[in-house]
Design a binder for these strands. Structure first.
Lengths: 343, 343
DNA sequence: TCCGGCAACTAGAGCGGTTTAGTACCTCGG
DNA sequence: CCGAGGTACTAAACCGCTCTAGTTGCCGGA
């Protein structure tokens, strides 16, 4: 027998489709005896709901959407997304919610996908990542009236809810640590300049200069690729008055930087200290291990999912959840600067 | 105005719903003039198809499913999936097909997901990865009659189509290269022992012993994690008569192995050569760079998508596509063995 | 002139659920 | 013994789209 429908169950039990629907959805209108009988028959017939039919009636789609406007190559190397994804799904699957994932070219395509999926009732809500400085996605999503959660830093995302970490505080803790070790020339290999968190980190570093009396700090923007991370490192290490410590916005770039230092014969941490803003297996596995800011990305995914579920349940709701600030895990890539270089 | 339906368009143009449906789907039954008018109005009203309604009629769901039964932590570190994903989507999005992704605990949960998504018409077909030696998923999918493509090695996957690479040939090419450099003691840090490709690689290595007159080859299975990769490396390098070359089944493990060698003061490639079975940014970025088998994973994803689309279009079809065998990219982690260690 | 055939369209059933309006029956107070 | 009110159910509309069967009008051939 092909897929059974509630009509099949109704016939077999000898009740109406409506009664079956009530019973299967646990709502009042049927006696306990009838409900039990219907559930038993549904189970025997191996019935499963037809999500399309449900969605048609205006009910939940039973899925959330995540659209990424990042080049595929960038996606590949960062553990961040995979971990975020599994954290999201751990929470979502408890609610039998699926996840629609799409990788697109740019944010225009991303917005078009939001339109299509909303119109098509394909998803009940969206997760947004990588908020940029003047991000057209917020307005578009608000216009669509689709529930959404932004994963980003502090600040406003239109009327959208958010889950955020304090990048500023994290950067300050890194620079405080380096300054305490005696470093005065700290450089920063940043990520995409358009991203909000890149801006926040750059600003936090600049503020540290004044506060801690550092000299000569600089932030070089990159596209997060290993190639640009390596190039930026090469630039920094070739300068007269080279930095004694470099902070990288991602673990892949930190790793690339470590490679460049080795290549140039610059000892780590003897001549330059290295800190990564992201922790992952990569930072643990290298030799020397890389001092990193560590956070529980899987838990972060769970929090995002939680907030999204709440917003889906009550679209009028708006929540802004601050997550734990990443803490610094010290490994072998950081040490006090060599005497004579610290000026 | 809320989301427009084809009925709204029909009313506005002054034709029936059926005519609108014909026009929008590019099928005969309306004149060119009417079709143009309908398309124009649809565009003006910003109409988008409601995929649930389409799926209800028994038509395509407009999505494919990828269910991964891997621990989230393993997922994170390998660029492989992200690249595969983007390759899949590049091809699928040309057909406006979306992708439903789910990470589950084990293959029982995976099979249950296949049941649910098939019943619910949520997807039109599936991509299967990580085929194991006696894999229950093939039978389950055949019973469901769902179109599917297995990404794996040569061999039968029940009646399912497949896209496969020749692991055996790849392993042989690695061992040939190492033997040509003069290595006689080659070790292998393998992946999960239950996976078919792990078995094939182990067998290929064993066969090389006889063919090339190597001594003392060994394959240590792992769970693909950096921890087990490091542990296996430690074991191998502590042995009397330690190997002069180690082949790793993944880039993360090769990286971990490189770290362990550094820790133990074993020079790479002076005292031990290292080869990774997977190429990615990680192998390029380290110092020394790791010699690796390289393949175009994004293109691979495209091929899988192509075959899946064909099988969805004609479920009776069965295709087995062999992909290009990975080619060896030599970097600095391999060299002839030091004199006196090669025996 | 009439009819067959075709192009261009319409009407409406159907997909598998949900939901509302309505009905039959039971119970209980007065 | 009657009617109000609650419970347990049925019938059917409805969601947006597809697709089949039918209808209309026009053209060309005998």
């Amino acid at each position: 027998m092909a897929r059974p429908t509630i009509a099949d169950i109704a016939r077999r039990v000898g009740v109406s489709k409506g009664a079956v629907s009530f019973a299967l959805n646990g709502r009042p209108g049927v006696s306990e005896a009838t409900r039990a009988r219907i559930l038993q028959v549904a189970d025997e017939m191996n019935w499963r709901p037809h999500s399309a039919a449900r969605a048609l009636g205006g009910a939940r789609a039973g899925a959330v959407g995540l659209v990424l406007a990042r080049p595929a190559s960038t996606l590949g190397v960062e553990p961040f997304f995979a971990q975020l994804l599994s954290g999201l799904q751990a929470r979502l699957s408890a609610e039998s919610m699926a996840m629609n994932l799409l990788v697109v070219e740019d944010s225009a395509a991303e917005i078009e996908t939001y339109r299509e999926w909303t119109s098509a009732h394909r998803v009940d809500g969206f997760v947004l990542v990588d908020p940029t400085v003047r991000d057209p996605r917020f307005e578009a999503l608000e216009a669509l009236g689709a529930p959404a959660v932004v994963l980003g830093g502090p600040g406003r995302f239109g009327a959208l809810s958010s889950v955020w970490a304090d990048d500023r505080e994290a950067m300050l803790s890194v620079v405080d640590y380096l300054a305490a070790l005696g470093h005065r020339r700290v450089a920063h290999v940043a990520g995409l300049p358009g991203l909000r968190h890149t801006q926040r980190r750059i600003r936090a570093l600049r503020d540290s200069v004044r506060r801690l009396g550092l000299v000569d700090t600089v932030s070089l923007p990159t596209d997060f690729s290993d190639a640009e991370g390596a190039a930026a490192t090469r630039t920094l290490l070739s300068r007269p008055g080279r930095p004694t410590a470099i902070v990288y916005d991602s673990d892949v770039m930190a790793l690339a930087g470590l490679g460049v230092a080795g290549e140039m014969g610059v000892r780590v941490p003897g001549e330059v200290s290295i800190v990564s803003f992201d922790d992952s297996v990569l930072t643990r596995v290298t030799h020397p291990g890389i001092t990193s800011l560590s956070r529980d990305t899987i838990a972060l995914g769970g929090q995002v999912a939680e907030v999204l579920l709440q917003v889906i349940a009550d679209p009028a709701l708006r929540r802004d959840v601050k997550t734990a600030t990443p803490r610094l895990v010290v490994r072998e890539s950081t040490a006090p600067p060599a005497p004579g270089t610290a000026g």
